[in-house]
Structure formats: structure tokens, C-alpha cells
């Protein structure tokens, strides 16, 4: 029963979704919007599971006085405090928006800015020439980098033969790079389709908490 009911529900929903997306009469009836509303409602219920998980994890850390437990107190205060603020004042209120716009946005931007430094350390490791593939990758990367800075135009002008450094950099991006990306995308489509069919045919059951 525990195996069959979810499998049947999954297959039936997959068939319904497929028909809704493919058939014009069902689109005209607004079936897609109705199903999306179901998903929203189910998602809202499931949100409580996330809140419960966070609360349980951090209450345990606080109870057992684990390392940095004070941050867990802070997390719970912020989570429930911000939730209460939103419920009392609404999510368009100035105070509610201020916490998001003045704290979360700049902190997120700071984290994003740090990616540049991580790229440098990652590039250092990747560009150590250990084999032919690494050498080709390094040459292409240095070429594209130079083509995108003004000194690249000075070394080999875009008006010159083959469009200069930029011309070759553009060719690298548009021809070999695009060809490989598209090949990966085609493979990805078939992989995703194969996974979906495993679920559809009921032979993939890991998500139901049982061996496949």
C-alpha cells in the first residue's frame, strides 16, 4: 500500500500534467492555472516542515550547548521575529522591507563579490599545465581574457586579419564552446527524460523512502 499509492498518484499526475500541457481544450479551460494553485497550496503546507527542521536542529544545538550555540539562538530569534513582523505589519511595510533591502541585499552582494577571488584561486589550480588538455584550456582562457581587455586590441586589432584577438575569442565562444554546450544539453535532455520515465514507470522509488 505504502509503495503502490504514491506510485499510482505520481503516474496519474504525470499523465494529467502531460495532457494539460499538450491539449489546447484543457489549456482553454484554465487547467494549468488550477494545478499550479494546488502546487502553491501544497508548498505552503510543506513550508512548515522546513521551519520545523530548522527549529528542531537549532533547539538541539542550544540544549546541548554545542560550539557557537549563541548563533542558533540568534537564528531562531531572527527567523521567528521576522516572521512575526511580516504577519503584523505586512510584507510591504517600511520596517519589513528595510531589513531585506538594507541588510540581506548588501550582505548577499558582498558574498557575490567574493566569487572573483575564488575564481582566481580556482583558476590557479586549473591552469597548472599538467597535460595537453590543461595546456589547451590555459591557452584558450588566457586568449579570451586578453581579448576582453583593451590591451588585447593593442596586441592584435579587431580590424586586422581574422578579426584580431576578439575575432578568434568570439569564434572560440560561438563554435567549439557552443557545440560542446549543445551536445551536453542534448545528453541532459535524454538523461532527464530517462529519470522521469523511471519514476513514471514506477521503477525508481528512492523518493518514496524505499530501495529502487
Amino acid at each position: 500500500m505504502r509503495q503502490q499509492v504514491p506510485s499510482i498518484l505520481t503516474t496519474v499526475m504525470a499523465i494529467i500534467m502531460f495532457l494539460v500541457i499538450m491539449l489546447q481544450p484543457l489549456q482553454d479551460m484554465g487547467a494549468e492555472a488550477s494545478i499550479n494553485r494546488w502546487f502553491q497550496m501544497l508548498g505552503t503546507v510543506a513550508l512548515f516542515m522546513g521551519i520545523w527542521n530548522l527549529t528542531r536542529t537549532h533547539l538541539t544545538i542550544i540544549k546541548k550547548r554545542r560550539m557557537n550555540w549563541i548563533f542558533s539562538v540568534w537564528l531562531l530569534v531572527v527567523m521567528y521575529g521576522y516572521m512575526l513582523l511580516g504577519m503584523i505589519q505586512g510584507n510591504e511595510s517600511t520596517v519589513y522591507r528595510w531589513f531585506y533591502d538594507a541588510l540581506i541585499v548588501p550582505i548577499s552582494s558582498t558574498m557575490f563579490a567574493m566569487v572573483a577571488f575564488y575564481i582566481v584561486s580556482g583558476a590557479y589550480r586549473a591552469f597548472r599545465v599538467r597535460n595537453v588538455e590543461a595546456a589547451i584550456m590555459m591557452v584558450c582562457a588566457v586568449w579570451v581574457m586578453l581579448a576582453n581587455v583593451p590591451v588585447g586590441d593593442l596586441i592584435w586589432s579587431p580590424e586586422g586579419w581574422l578579426g584580431g584577438m576578439q575575432g578568434i575569442a568570439n569564434w572560440l565562444a560561438k563554435v567549439p564552446n557552443s557545440a560542446v554546450s549543445r551536445a551536453i544539453s542534448v545528453g541532459t535532455f535524454f538523461g532527464a527524460m530517462s529519470t522521469q520515465l523511471r519514476i513514471f514507470l514506477g521503477i525508481e522509488r528512492r523518493h518514496l523512502g524505499m530501495g529502487a
Binding site: I184, S185, G187, G191, A192, S194, R206
Partner: peptide, 11 residues
């Protein structure tokens, strides 16, 4: 694991 290789795991 690139592209469809990601989906091959369970199988």
C-alpha cells in the same frame, strides 16, 4: 559528472 551523467547515478 557532466550533463546526463548526473542522472545516471541511481541506475
Amino acid at each position: 559528472l557532466i550533463g546526463e551523467e548526473e542522472y545516471a547515478a541511481s541506475a
